[in-house]
Amino acid sequence: MIASINPSMKAFSVLIPGILLALTYDFFTPLFYLVFILIITFTLSKVSFYRWIKIFTPFLLIAIGFSWMTMLYTSEEFSGGHVLFEVWRFEVTSGSFETGVSLGLRSLCFVSLSLLFVLTTDSTKFMLSLMQQCKLPPKITYGILAGYRFLPTFQQELQLIRQAHRIRGVARSKGLRDRIGLFRRYVIPLLANGIRKAERVALAMESKGFSGESKRTYYHEMKINPRDWLFLFCMVGSLVTIASLSSYFGFLNIFGKQY
């Protein structure tokens, strides 16, 4: 279901909650919104849990590091409350602990929202939606899409160049000077091939009548349906509801002020 949502609407559905979450400094709001994102991700999409956790795990470790450093180096504005424990000469108070946990949970919410968008969105449809709904100029959009399509080919060409060097008996780099020379031997052919491909793509687009004008017809038209608006209201409304509950129970904290 999420994969069929209009990509531009999906981007706004991810961006707006991310901006609103950045204003909160309590742990209640991002914790329950993170649970909501996970439920949406694994019930309304076909995202593989193994693939998701494989991408998510490095960011989880980074978020734990952010939380720990925030607990130790929290500013005076957020470090109030009684001392929970000490680490060497650092005192972790209830305020610094809550701020650190909040930062970690917010980071995980940002990562989860990003994965929800990236793993359920087709890049071509996203570019088409940016042109048709957000009025992004076709020259920029097709340029980004062409560059994105070229990335896998560069990796294949790099492997071919390495194999060609090995066949010709080029020795592997040992010192810093050799590594710099090896870098030049790899980069120059890749750049030359990239320029040739860009010229061929440009000539092909011109021969098919591409002029870069915004007023044009599209073979595949992207439309905004009621379910797209429903998804947007669901993502934003759930965050507002959780923030309201957080305020009701006395947890909501925005820029250090309790609500």
Rank of each mutant, 00 (worst) to 15 (best):
T99A: 15
T70L: 07
V83N: 08
I64G: 05
T124R: 11
D122I: 05
A146Q: 05
F110C: 05
P137A: 03
E98S: 14
I62D: 06
F28T: 00
T29Y: 03
S48N: 08
R149C: 12
G81N: 11
I53Y: 11
M127P: 07
C134L: 15
I64S: 10
G81S: 11
F49T: 12
I140C: 05
H82I: 14
V35L: 14
G81Y: 11
L115R: 04
T120A: 00
L60Q: 00
I144A: 08
L34A: 06
T43F: 08
P30E: 05
S48H: 04
S79P: 07
E91Q: 15
L23P: 12
F32Y: 09
W52L: 03
L21N: 06
K54M: 09
R89P: 09
K54A: 08
L115S: 07
G95Q: 03
K125I: 09
G80W: 13
T29K: 02
I64Q: 05
L115C: 01
L136W: 04
V92C: 07
P138A: 01
W52Q: 01
F32K: 02
F110M: 11
E77L: 15
L38M: 12
W68D: 05
V83P: 03
F28I: 08
F32I: 07
T57K: 15
E98D: 07
P30N: 09
S75F: 04
L44Q: 10
K135G: 05
E76S: 14
F78T: 12
D122Q: 02
P17W: 00
